[in-house]
Design a protein around this nucleic acid. Structure first.
Lengths: 161, 161
DNA sequence: TATGAAATACTTCGCCC
DNA sequence: GGGCGAAGTATTTCATA
């Protein structure tokens, strides 16, 4: 029951080589241009220019080291749904959530919960602090917390082809 | 209502310079050793050795380019909770979910939902396909899908100090 | 986009603190 | 042990076509 391949990404014209570069850089963000060049069969300057264009076009928004949370003392992960009250001060709510650095992800969602957050904290008391802080935010009516027992994988890339 | 600073990460001895390097590399994963050296006030070889040790110790697990999903045609994000049935074939379920590349994150959770997934697909029909595929997985009793309207931020780093 | 050249950076080594 | 300086090698980056 496989549908035909959907839209071919009309946003920017990303050809096969660009796609390949994106995959390589998602797999190893520190790969040198020379190494990338070898893998895609182009010269290093050509790769350099292509990657630069992908960055300028906003396709690549940055590069980051992936750090094991537990290794830096962040032993507890949780997903927190935010049920907002009638009073919707979206801007203020976002600011308040953004002020909590333990909120690593923030999604605006459809459904009974207006936002879902992924938070990472050192331990359960710190999770309690976070929940308390969120419940004090103006516009938050209630929260629903789901504790993550283990992260099977995270930030995986790759399309459904 | 601030608790005292919790555990100082007993896993590995990460000193202030290491912490600084981690932050710099999370902010710019392609920063050169020379640039990192300038920022932390050490020589390039010293930084090279420190980063190498952080990688060997598993503190840094990799480097990745951050790609705008919309720019590569992934316009729909959703969070899907998995309600598992009595028959718990954990290994088989994980394999089946892992076989779906659109499942970018997979968390084992406490609560009524045994897993929560973050999926990214091209469009709503592809989301429907994904939900159907998940519901066919042996051990999955029901799914609950929350569509993400917009991603406010994702993968933010930084501790709650 | 490729080539070649100059500047920079990476990486290993011995040495020092 | 951890960091520094210097050396050789590789890479980046610019010119040019």
């Amino acid at each position: 029951m496989r549908r035909p391949v959907p839209a071919p990404a009309p946003e920017a014209d990303i050809d096969a080589v660009d796609q390949q570069l994106l995959t390589l850089l998602q797999t190893n963000g520190r790969a040198s241009y020379a190494e990338l060049a070898r893998q895609v069969g182009l010269s290093a300057p050509a790769v350099h220019e292509r990657v630069g264009k992908l960055e300028s076009a906003g396709v690549i928004t940055g590069y980051t080291a992936v750090v094991d949370p537990a290794a830096v003392g962040l032993g507890v992960t949780a997903l927190i749904g935010i049920i907002d009250s009638d009073e919707v001060d979206d801007v203020g709510m976002l600011e308040a959530m953004s002020d909590l650095p333990q909120v690593q992800d923030c999604w605006r969602t459809a459904g009974t919960e207006g936002y879902v957050l992924k938070v990472r904290v050192t331990d359960i008391p710190a999770l309690e602090d976070t929940i308390n802080a969120l419940n004090r935010v103006r516009g938050v009516s209630r929260t629903r917390t789901t504790v993550v027992l283990s992260t099977k994988w995270e930030g995986r890339h790759g399309r459904s082809e």
